[in-house]
């Protein structure tokens, strides 16, 4: 029983982390309709920023978090305004934007490696606390914070999308860009905001992941593959679907190692990614149009 509980808890933690990445990725995909792979490096940048502000510069932790989130939003906006928007203005196709985003990912990852070095970094904010026993599973207070804050975040994101004017505009653009611009929605403004909000979500993900795990220059690639896989499983066009898909991925990986050696954790994610891309590219909860010919 305790193995099952432990795997459930681990799946929940992994799922929360993946969902934090996938939610921003999917939000940006919704309004822009291209795969912003560099979203993974936004997470890594946030983690390293927090490390710089808090661990290197010694700034107060909560103020460091605030600074990190502001910089994350700015970073997202810069990518959009500096690279994606000029490409879109030149009528670049989605695949060009995808390739450009992989270029940004590689570029920034290697910049991180030059600036901070290839060795792992640790943010020592919370002393490694005694794990709590939870139905036979061990869980640390930080992990509880991760799970709770992601749930709170997703609920508030849901209400933001449903209740605010900007959220409504984003959904309108995601649903039908032409129609949205006919009814007077400024597309560029909405796209800019979705990059800012999506990247702040990446910032929050980076902070929580940075507190839980070691920082590695290449962490962004691993995270975006997971977040992307989660989004594909759920349905990339919908933020709630992507979040659900990410939890499914987290559980699948962890329950999977009940049967398989733990080295196959990655393989489970990739197998799911491939199966969904090939047999159900719109995901479990996504809509059919726009994916298949």
């Amino acid at each position: 029983m305790s193995i099952f509980s432990q795997l459930t808890v681990n799946g929940l933690i992994a799922g929360s982390i993946y969902a934090l990445v996938a939610s921003g990725f999917s939000l940006i995909y919704g309004t822009n309709k291209f795969m912003h792979f560099a979203h993974g490096v936004s997470v890594a940048v946030a983690a390293y920023l927090l490390y710089s502000f808090f661990s290197l510069a010694g700034i107060n932790f909560y103020f460091s978090v605030l600074l990190t989130l502001i910089f994350s939003g700015v970073f997202g906006l810069l990518m959009y305004r500096g690279i994606y928007l000029p490409l879109q203005n030149k009528k670049a196709s989605n695949v060009i934007l995808l390739i450009a985003s992989i270029g940004i990912l590689i570029l920034v990852e290697n910049l991180i490696q030059i600036i901070y070095g290839a060795d792992v970094k640790v943010i020592n904010f919370i002393e490694v606390a005694q794990g709590l026993n939870f139905f036979g599973a061990i869980i640390t207070p930080l992990q509880i914070v991760i799970i709770l804050s992601s749930v709170i975040l997703f609920v508030s994101l849901y209400f933001f999308m449903k209740k605010t004017r900007l959220g409504r505009d984003m959904r309108a653009v995601a649903d039908n860009k032409e129609l949205a611009s006919i009814v007077g929605i400024n597309y560029k403004r909405v796209a800019s905001y979705s990059f800012i909000i999506g990247s702040v979500l990446a910032g929050i993900a980076g902070i929580l992941i940075g507190l839980e795990q070691n920082l590695r220059p290449l962490m962004g690639t691993d995270l975006i593959i997971r977040g992307f896989t989660g989004a594909v499983i759920g349905g990339i066009t919908s933020v709630p679907a992507s979040i659900l898909g990410s939890y499914i991925l987290g559980f699948a990986e962890n329950y999977g190692i009940w049967f398989l050696p733990s080295g196959y954790k990655d393989a489970i994610a990739f197998a799911l990614l491939l199966i969904f891309l090939l047999f159900r590219p719109r995901g479990l909860f996504g809509l059919k149009r726009e994916v298949e010919k």
Partner: peptide
Amino acid sequence: LKGDYFAL
């Protein structure tokens, strides 16, 4: 698959 889904 079409377009960017094929690429992905």
